[in-house]
Design a protein around this nucleic acid. Sequence first.
DNA 1: CGCGGTGTTGACGCCGCTCAAAGTATGTGG
DNA 2: CCACATACTTTGAGCGGCGTCAACACCGCG
Lengths: 212, 212
Amino acid sequence: MSGQIARSEQYSYFRPHQFLAREDEEPAGIYKIDEGWACRYRLLSDGRRQITALYLPGDYCEPQWALGKRPSQPVVALTIVRATRLPENTAWGFQPEAQQAFWSKLGDVIERQTNWLVTLGRKTALERVSHLLLELFERMRNAGLAYGQQCAMPLTQMEIADLTGLTPVHVNRTLQAMRSRGLVELQSKWLRIPDLPTLRDVASLGSGEIVG
Amino acid sequence: MSGQIARSEQYSYFRPHQFLAREDEEPAGIYKIDEGWACRYRLLSDGRRQITALYLPGDYCEPQWALGKRPSQPVVALTIVRATRLPENTAWGFQPEAQQAFWSKLGDVIERQTNWLVTLGRKTALERVSHLLLELFERMRNAGLAYGQQCAMPLTQMEIADLTGLTPVHVNRTLQAMRSRGLVELQSKWLRIPDLPTLRDVASLGSGEIVG
DNA sequence: CGCGGTGTTGACGCCGCTCAAAGTATGTGG
DNA sequence: CCACATACTTTGAGCGGCGTCAACACCGCG
């Protein structure tokens, strides 16, 4: 369950449920996700789980380790993941444009987290799920992984529940309501959003506040 | 309502409800809070409000502006605030120990936000309010502003509600339950916590996960 | 073919919300 | 120092969105 399944000259591979980082352990390094999805989460003693970050292709996992912090939450692969370990000095090192991009992405992470505070604190189930699917699509699109109005969506309903702070049962009912209203098409791990502006509206998101 | 009420050679002053930053506007600069409390929030179109960050004495407002982002949410004073504007180069400038402290505080902000994602997504009213009061006390203590087991607590119940994602009415009832169980004493803007470990337990917080 | 993980459906219960009103500080001006 | 306004806190009654529990269906995979 620990240690990568393979490591070529440049790539690290992880399979679903395998850890990229464990709580309070020194991380092997900062990864750049090349393929696949991963997440960070916290488990409460009675089994409640909240996913606190999602890593998609192109994301760094995790930029804040460059600030000298250790991971306080585990990071685990949701699908098969291919990742590249960054050289130690990428954050503080010599190439200005790489640094710039790196810190800018850290800013995006902070802003996304802030948006999720609003959603988890104040929004209904319908708004939460809408926010999530919208964010997934826009991040995938910005990573060049959307095809027209659709993109891959490997999450199970239970994982959606742990992201949105709902139960799997209620996620199921909410998705059905969304499908029957034509807000999304979601089947066999593919997501299609017929009308982005309408979905933004349903999610109670302003015009620009998803950071992809 | 805008512009500081006074600015001496070194200090900026703000009164309650006055903005330290407005949405999408270039901030006047990064402040270090010397005295008083401020917060960042988002308002939804139907009036729901979620407070997404709290700034206490010693905090920077806001470190992520150094990453090249503009404020995407307003920052407003909750009490009278005295603050110092940082020189432009504090983050990227020459004194290594100041830089170190600055980036370390940014890491703390990210971690606190992550902890709040768990609380807002998965915890009960009792756990939420406990988490908040515990965090306030520990941050005030780390700032040298706690006296024994007590510290100042200027928040109204409505502000507590907007921090915890509850309604003011339910915050009131939750506080009464906590008082009657002896978990906290809270009156006339002062907070006393008789037993920190017990309160941590009630808040479903592990041993170390509040970043003060 | 069988099995574990996932998705779906129904009945029912509860935590926290809504609405409404009364009580209590805090402060301001006369 | 009092009169009054305004904000905040407290209390009650009723309701509803989402959780809980349980069963069943589906599907990919060994």
